[in-house]
Design a protein around this nucleic acid. Sequence first.
DNA 1: AACTTAGGCAACCGCCTCCAT
DNA 2: AATGGAGGCGGTTGCCTAAGT
Length: 203
Amino acid sequence: MDKKPCNSSSQDAEVRKGPWTMEEDMILINYIANHGEGVWNTLAKSAGLKRTGKSCRLRWLNYLRPDVRRGNITPEEELLIVELHAKWGNRWSKIAKHLPGRTDNEIKNYWRTRIQKHIKQAENLYGQSSSSVVIDQTGSSISQVSAVGRMDVEPLETYSPPSFQTNMDQPIPAVPHLPAPESINDNYWSMEDIWSMQLFGGD
DNA sequence: AACTTAGGCAACCGCCTCCAT
DNA sequence: AATGGAGGCGGTTGCCTAAGT
């Protein structure tokens, strides 16, 4: 992607890409606090941001909104994600609607980095031919369909491919557990910081 | 201590849908 | 009914950093 620093100095009329600076965040927060969300392209121009409307929208929805929860996906949320994914597949935004404060991007990343890892490990350990495990065409979806047709899922704290258990002569070798949620995202400047700052700086 | 590797995540891209004209 | 613009969404990329050697 485009995390390369962009030399905007020589191309001020150009659209900026890459990581958002704290200053840009402040501008966007202040603008929305004062004017509300609107047409994003217009908003970007009016706020003086050299960003596309899409970029502003994404930044706001995924990071700057005051109700965004960051890090610490709980076991309950994990369960819900797995459950809803089994039901809807990669409909991340739809899934996100059922997880207050979570964004589709966050859930998508979580799925790909954490949950899919477990799927891969399961595949490597037991092969891919287990009849009751359904992996979609992108390899991104796993679910277990029980005899009554509903999806049975477990929170990942205890996650192991449930369907394999019935086929096994031996206990599942410990599938590595997820890292402790507390260890995640300690190195960000917090949104509380930004919001407290914008409260003082809001025009 | 230095180097390498792998994981996590923010952000972009391209496609699709919706809506106003 | 056709068209173009904007928003929404899922997929993908690549930087940063922690863990491992």
